[in-house]
Design a protein around this nucleic acid. Structure first.
Lengths: 108, 108
DNA sequence: ACTGCATATGCGTATATCCGCATATGCACT
DNA sequence: AGTGCATATGCGGATATACGCATATGCAGT
């Protein structure tokens, strides 16, 4: 173990360093709640893959989740340390804007 | 391949998501030139390990290098896109300050 | 040419990461 | 209880990453 092993920032960065996960985070960063099924459709990935990415984002503290009937609603963690927010925002800003929501499943 | 695969930001983030590499980048971010031997001593890692991390940072475009006699001098790439700088700076600022230089080998 | 220091790299290994498939779990509705 | 949808997870496989060791390369001084 190196003397400089702080891990907090490193854990954050490794959570952000996967393309699908980063795009999911970007979508969630609008402050709204999003379920796995919405994100998987918008990103075009399988269910297990999406679920695991979300749980990784949650584990590192970026998201909160909430059971709502059959769904799990993920949302940006409102209590993020400002230092983290300062790291995350320029990264998300550097990405092209996410696609429109095309999942009308829950629209009704 | 997913539609959102942009890769530029993803490549940057994956380059930053390794602790030793990130600490090396932080040290190099002072704007000065640094050789591998200095960084490996300050970070307490082996030569091959340090060399490979530096070459990864260079390959992704973060650093430039310059042969100077036996040494290779690495330096922050002065032509980084502002978007990248905006991403990197809050990350480095979130790390504790790097240790003092303890390598007097070249001090004379 | 030979030695010595700095750096890069081939190679094998250990480990982490990511994925899909299948299955389990949780919830709602009948 | 049984069905159906949403989500989580065990598992195995493929791939990527990081590492150390040994060796090659590049340069300087003798």
């Amino acid at each position: 173990m190196q003397w400089y092993m702080d891990t907090r920032i490193d854990d954050l960065l490794s959570a952000l360093s996967e393309p699908t996960r980063l795009r999911a985070l970007q979508m969630i960063w609008d402050g709204e709640e999003h379920c796995v099924c919405e994100l998987m459709e918008r990103l075009g990935v399988t269910q297990s893959r999406m679920s695991r990415h979300m749980s990784r984002l949650k584990d590192v503290g970026l998201l909160t989740d909430r059971r709502d009937a059959q769904w799990v609603r993920y949302r940006k963690n409102p209590d993020l340390p400002p230092v983290w927010t300062a790291i995350i925002e320029p990264i998300l800003a550097a990405l092209p804007a996410p696609r429109e929501v095309r999942c009308e499943r829950e629209a009704a």
